[in-house]
Design a protein around this nucleic acid. Structure first.
Length: 459
RNA sequence: GUGGUUGUAGCUCAGUUGGUUAGAGCAUCAGAUUGUGGUUCUGAGGGUCGCGGGUUCGAGCCCCGUCUCCCACCCCA
């Protein structure tokens, strides 16, 4: 007995009808990326582990898929030593699947720095892999659609990214909220409350504010060794209400004296100046509880959430000042944002927002009655294809019932029938599947008639 | 990594207090219909009941282990 076919946990197959919808998402995103002047690149599925490790924090390292070395990697090892998997790991694996597109991009920029004209605006649509436990909206293989610009400090780039977000989700008809924050503000807060070293703990804790409430956040903070004094100082920040502008001015009185905090405030208010003049359709707000776990961010951070469906963020990004310097190219700042195509698919699916796309790929099918009929049809099939009509001939002279059924299941709107009678009269019988109507056409007129219908605006 | 849940035909699921040969719908294939699909009718194929062990005269059902699926947490797109 053959074993039951299956695919690894957290991965999916995509059939033709799903691919039509996925391509709708990819095409929409890609077209908008291009319109803003971004250029495509691709990088390999696997990177050296030295490229990937340490860029995503402790959690991220654990979620990296590692690739086993080829060959007998165990041969030269001293078996008398007490081997832990930690010690073993570098010997048996030196490559890993990419975890995101930003870090490989930073590597790419440094590697080809002499060929790149800065500022470099690139987009990249490729799958990434994470050894996570799958659940709703979470997969082990999923596509990210990244736009980044490196080599420019201007906040105009941040503003443009928000504009792209606005553009894309308007076109996809998804209602979203764009949350904006700045790592420098978070650092300023940490400094203000007197524990700048625990920036990460603080951000992770306040990120959970709307989920678990103030009391549990405070409990977690003191658990992490943050003093009662500091937690007290933090409260007015946690409870801050009002519009983004009001928050900014109140922040000034709190963390304005810290130099990093002042810098963050200046950046955010400049960004909001840009955004307020852009007439964006989607709501955006300053959210001080937005932290984002990826630890390479240094300035603005973004996150986009769908409003009408319970789902993790469908889009996120930020500015990273030091990512290229890790690979040996200092002073090149970048900023970018990543669209999660698979989650966007789930949102569109759940809200039934996919447009009525035609799943049909073939417009006309020639029925196959045998060798002679084949020879009669083939020149016309060729002409139809040359005229830009998607057409095919059934490859076997099976029963007509089976061929009609094939057309029906594949949603092919036109079936062209030519048997002995039609051949003798140099004609074709054209059947319109939806109405069931049939018409007899002269063979010379076939191409013209079908191209005319094929160009109708509704197709 | 932590917690919960699920597993029976290709898919969705029934299956009584443990009892003879494990069922249905959908899908597939064939026929009714040798040049006409989506409807209908008839028939057929398809199963190591996730896997391994145990209890029992007897296990799809009870017990233990294990894997898997989905969900939540952590974290994230």
């Amino acid at each position: 007995m053959a074993q039951k076919p299956s695919i690894p946990k957290g991965t999916r197959d995509f059939g033709p009808q799903i691919m039509v919808r996925r391509n709708y998402i990819f095409d929409t995103i890609r077209n908008i990326f291009k319109r803003y002047g971004y250029q495509p690149i691709e990088t390999p599925a696997m990177e050296n582990l030295s490229t990937l490790l340490g860029k995503y924090g402790e959690e991220g390292d654990k979620l990296l898929f590692r690739i086993l070395n080829s060959g007998d990697f165990i041969a030269g090892m001293d078996s008398s030593e007490n081997l832990t998997s930690e010690k073993l790991a570098p010997f048996i694996s030196e490559k890993g699947l990419r975890y995101d597109l930003t870090v490989p991009f930073a590597r790419f920029v440094v590697q080809y720095r002499n060929d790149i004209t800065f500022p470099f605006k690139r987009y990249q649509i490729q799958p990434v892999w994470r050894a996570d436990r799958p659940q709703k909206g979470r997969y082990r293989e999923f596509y990210q659609c990244d736009v980044d610009v490196v080599g420019s400090d201007s906040l105009l780039n941040e503003a443009e990214l928000v504009q792209i977000v606005d553009d894309i989700f308007n076109q996809l008809n998804i209602k979203v909220l764009v949350k904006i924050n700045n790592r420098k503000i978070l650092a300023g807060i940490a400094e203000y409350i007197g524990s700048p070293e625990s920036l990460t703990d603080i951000t992770v804790a306040i990120d959970k504010l709307d989920k678990i409430g103030v009391e549990k956040v405070n409990a977690e903070l003191s658990e992490k060794g943050i003093s009662v004094e500091s937690i007290k100082l933090l409260q007015p920040i946690l409870f801050m209400q009002g519009s983004s502008r009001e928050k900014i001015s109140r922040l000034e009185t709190l963390i304005g004296q810290t130099s990093i905090g002042a810098k963050g405030i200046a950046e955010v208010s400049q960004l909001f100046d840009y955004l307020d003049n852009m007439e964006l359709k989607l709501p955006y707000e300053l959210d001080l509880t937005l932290a984002r776990g990826l630890n390479y961010y240094t300035g603005a951070i973004f996150e986009v959430k769908a409003l009408d469906v319970a789902m993790g963020s469908i889009c996120g990004g930020g500015r990273y000042d030091d990512l290229t310097s890790i690979f040996g190219l200092p002073d090149v700042s970048g900023v970018g944002i990543s669209f999660g195509a698979d989650r966007i698919y789930d949102v569109l699916n759940e809200l039934a927002l996919f447009p009525e796309t035609t799943t049909e790929t073939t417009f006309a099918l020639f029925v196959n009655f045998g060798k002679a009929e084949e020879n009669y049809c083939l020149p016309y099939l060729w002409k139809l294809r040359q005229a830009g009509v998607n057409a095919e001939i059934f490859p076997d002279s099976d029963k007509m019932k089976k061929q009609m059924r094939y057309a029906d299941q594949k949603n092919i709107p036109v079936v062209i029938i030519a048997g002995e009678e039609e051949m003798n009269k140099k004609q074709f019988t054209v059947k319109w599947m939806q109405s069931g109507e049939q018409q007899t056409v002269e063979s010379d007129a076939l191409i013209e008639i079908l191209t005319g219908f094929n160009n109708l605006p509704n197709r």
